[in-house]
Design a protein around this nucleic acid. Structure first.
Lengths: 231, 231
DNA sequence: TAGATTGTTAATCGATTAACAATC
DNA sequence: TAGATTGTTAATCGATTAACAATC
């Protein structure tokens, strides 16, 4: 998936910020820009203005320019941004190119869906191990991006996780904390959990939670809110 | 799932804010508090301090008290909060109790996992229709919370969606916008999408996006960041 | 009363927006 | 040069935190 880097616009000294200076809100939008740029590139479009790119990403042009300014200055005044160049620079920031290994724990309906989700490989993630506690599932094979993986028993979690950089928890809520502890024990410092419970982790470990029920509850609240205002 | 409301602490005039005054950041934490309170209640615990509840929810006690203050004042100084009472009040705000109907479009691995996810019914959502474009899937039945549903063809989306309040898009990215348009056409004003693309919707329609790839990319960025700082 | 804990205020922090000088 | 568009500054907005008076 490595694209040859396009030349930067003119020989300007591209000053890069330290990663720790980039605000969290900006980081969470970089993947949106990256994706929009990929689409433009696939359409053969070479140049894009902050206006247009912002539109495609669902933000304002001021916000887009501000976000990019934390990474450096990649555009050309009066012209815009080189699509392929900006795309590859953001990819670099996001760490694409150097594939990150992922282990998934809990291969029920959701874990299964995640394991076989093509979007992961596209974004530079490689699922290297599937773990489940249920003996009736252990040994089954699952199609992942570029091949198949055998579901392995919980006892092999520690070993499998040692080779991964990211752990995904797709178990029922009751098991999440104990799985989390084992992942941390294996040296994992980045965890994505789909269990609604709050996880306790030592400092230095990043946890992100995806909670479908929570998202729906927020929508439900807004729905009520809307009704209340118009009533 | 309706619990009898516990009495409010003393006959204090419980002033409620208008829903539109509650900040977004607060709204997105209410489900966390609600869940923690449910756990406490199930353990038979009757009273809880902001300190303890905050711990269980992964926030600070100051933030918890501030958040609750937007909804009214439900605690007793020197004592804390009545678990069952606060739980039911937050439930009320979140609109639980009045089940909201959900239609899911795109019944691949992910849509299947969502349809059979028990967490939805627990939080007051009822899946009432499953739609897919693939003729080989149409007619299959899927176990949802309290029964089974037959997968229906795309042509029935409009009809099915008219009876729902929330639409969930679990299709590939390419189909998401067109599905979204039809949901809006059917009168849906709240959409949860799992496709990474940005959706264009008329104003008044709420969209929330869950993007697993994006979450992983953010973790990957933090991982690099960590390495860069310690290097 | 003395100890505990809320609800609220004021201060801080971070993120967004608007505007424009720089410059292609 | 004239028109366009960036990168940055300053102003605004919203969210978090700390501290404490109110009060059980």
């Amino acid at each position: 998936m490595s694209m040859p880097f396009t030349q930067p616009p003119a020989g300007r000294p591209t000053r890069l910020r330290r990663a720790c200076d980039v605000p969290g809100a900006t980081v969470s939008r970089l993947p949106l820009y990256h994706r929009a740029l990929g689409t433009l590139r696939d359409q053969g479009i070479q140049t894009v203005s902050s206006q247009r790119l912002a539109e495609l990403s669902g933000v304002t042009s001021a916000q887009l320019r501000k976000d990019l300014s934390y990474l450096g200055s990649f555009g050309t005044r009066g012209v815009g941004y080189q699509v392929a160049y900006l795309h590859s620079r953001i990819a670099e920031w996001l760490g694409a190119g150097s594939d990150l290994d992922v282990v998934i724990v809990g291969i029920g309906n959701l874990g299964h869906a995640l394991a076989s989700y093509r979007g992961l490989a596209e974004r530079g993630f490689r699922v290297i191990a599937l773990i489940d506690i249920d003996p009736s599932r252990v040994g089954d094979t699952v199609n992942v991006g570029d091949g198949t993986l055998r579901i392995r028993p919980l006892g092999e979690l520690l070993d499998a996780a040692r080779r991964a950089k990211i752990g995904v928890i797709a178990t029922p809520d009751a098991a999440a904390q104990s799985v989390c502890d084992r992942l941390v024990e294996a040296g994992i410092r980045n965890i994505l959990t789909f269990a609604p419970g709050v996880l306790n982790v030592p400092s230095g470990v990043e946890v992100r939670r995806v909670d479908v029920g929570l998202e729906l509850q927020i929508l439900a609240f807004r729905e009520r809110q809307h009704r209340a205002v118009s009533a």
